[in-house]
Amino acid sequence: MAASDVVFRVKRYRPESGGRPTFQEYTIPYRSDMVVLDGLNYIKDHIDPTLTFRWSCRMGICGSCGADVNGQPRLTCGTYVRDVHKGAVTVEPLSNFPILKDLVVDFDDFLRKLASVTPYIVRKDWGDLTKEYVQYPEDVEAYRQQSLCINCMLCYAACPVFGSSPEFVGPAASALALRYNRDTRDEGADARLARLNTRTGVWECTFVGECSVVCPKDVDPAAAIQTLKFLATMRHMRRLLMPGSSSR
């Protein structure tokens, strides 16, 4: 291995060949400005076209390229080899998800959870749809942070609670629930809080906070979950004291 090389240890799993996941090592040329995804693409294009991983935008916006890099959930397109390179770069599929092939995991469970929190604006009366619903900058600011989620699943890979109880609604779906609850145009807060107040809802969270550490978009799902716990409690109390009222 030349001084200008770097070793990638990549976890391989090929459903059609059976067996357990194994590691394969590739030695590739190193550049100081290379990201982990560049390394994977170099392997795919020049060494081993069978290596399988998802990616598209290479700019941290499509959310498809997540993997565990040296044990940490990361976007491979946003992780510089120079920052993680300690002799070798280990790349594994995101933890806590079923592996489909090599680094490709199955996210369908998240899509069901996302659907369960009513991730859209709910209104009893839509009024005149040809008119604008005016929002002021401060109205947008209220949910801007949560709306930046790219569904990359790093937070689920980092979450020990999701790892041990897969039913847990989890960080990103909770953050997106809060995004809609904070939208001045929305009237669905009550139903979402009811959903999150269940056995698989926000109370499962023990506030480890790893989700917010790994989130590449500063969505801070851990804080969102804490807020939702508070809102769910308020809703509960209000329903006891003022039956028939609803959450905003």
């Binding site: 090929r14 459903p15 059609e16 060949s17 795919k44 081993d48 076209p49 069978t50 399988t52 991983f53 489909l100 092939k101 490709v104």
Partner: peptide, 12 residues
Amino acid sequence: GLADKDRVFNTE
């Protein structure tokens, strides 16, 4: 030609 002969998730 292709090196990957799998049908599942064959990105090649």
